[in-house]
Design a protein around this nucleic acid. Structure first.
Lengths: 155, 155
DNA sequence: CTAAGTGCAAACATTTTGCAATCCA
DNA sequence: TGGATTGCAAAATGTTTGCACTTAG
């Protein structure tokens, strides 16, 4: 799926809700899909600020991200840094995250067997699963090396 | 491990850091360990307010929870409601959470096989795991029933 | 005694909202 | 045209912090 197709999907989404495709929404959308990084609302706001032309307000960034989230175009992740980070969802299969406590880097991984075990657990409890979120916190390869071999003081 | 033993452990912890056991810390500690529920800082503050005697300030509740977290007496969990919820750790083996999107109830579960697969994933990426956090979001048995069999509109 | 702890209110950071002006469909 | 959207600044939320006073050890 290329960028044009994604935009079209967004346009259709807006239409079904009688919402309008404004220049601001377009900018935010393009930027969100133009990166494969995870970004916070503030980060995205910063990116747009650096672009030529009219600025988009912080409020609109927040409002549009909420809209994209609602439409399933992006997913939100709380990496434990006090702000949500987003990632676009298209072309991205579901995955979980490893968050580095040192540098904040977010790595992705996926293991279908884990997903299956989750479903199994839900079945047992009669829990109707909507979504899930697995975060591993620790040190990425680079930071772990820098910190030496001393083990963490955690439980 | 009974309450007295837990308190002693807390006293020892404070001593090793040259911290003091104040009436406020004692109150907060007792309340945190006196429940098996998950609670937010605000909730705990509310509980203490309802108790007879001197009130503990909100600031002290936050400061003490941070201390308990640091000492490994409680764990924090972001249930996705904008505030952290805590749970005491003693007598509680590690477990993951199912958060009901309707009523907010938090259920616990555990599957050792999931833990193993996580370690395996970390090994692959050279990631040094410190802790993890698996949250399943959806509807608990009761709420799922109330909502009928219509499937969620999520992706 | 004195380092540590407390309460208060102000400060913070992130996100949300009310409102008047503006813009798409 | 008219409902949707925007920007702004103010408000809301959850949490942290500076400071003068108090207290445990």
């Amino acid at each position: 799926m290329n960028h044009e197709q994604i935009v079209q999907r967004f346009e259709r989404f807006l239409k079904t809700r009688s919402l309008k495709l404004t220049a601001q929404r377009r900018k935010i959308f393009d930027r969100a899909f133009g990166t494969h990084e995870h970004f916070s609302a503030e980060t995205l706001y910063g990116w747009l600020k650096d672009e030529p032309g009219e600025n988009v307000s912080r409020a609109t960034v927040y409002r549009t991200l909420a809209l994209l989230l609602d439409g399933g175009f992006v997913e939100a992740l709380d990496a434990g840094r006090g702000e949500l980070v987003y990632e676009h969802v298209l072309g991205h299969a579901h995955h979980d995250h490893m968050v580095c406590l040192e540098c904040g880097k977010i790595e992705e991984f996926h293991d279908e067997r884990i997903e299956e075990l989750q479903l199994e657990a839900c079945k047992k409890k009669g829990f109707q699963l909507v979504s899930h979120d697995l975060r591993l916190r620790g040190y990425c390869r680079g930071c772990a090396k820098k910190r030496g071999t001393r083990s963490a003081s955690a439980t």
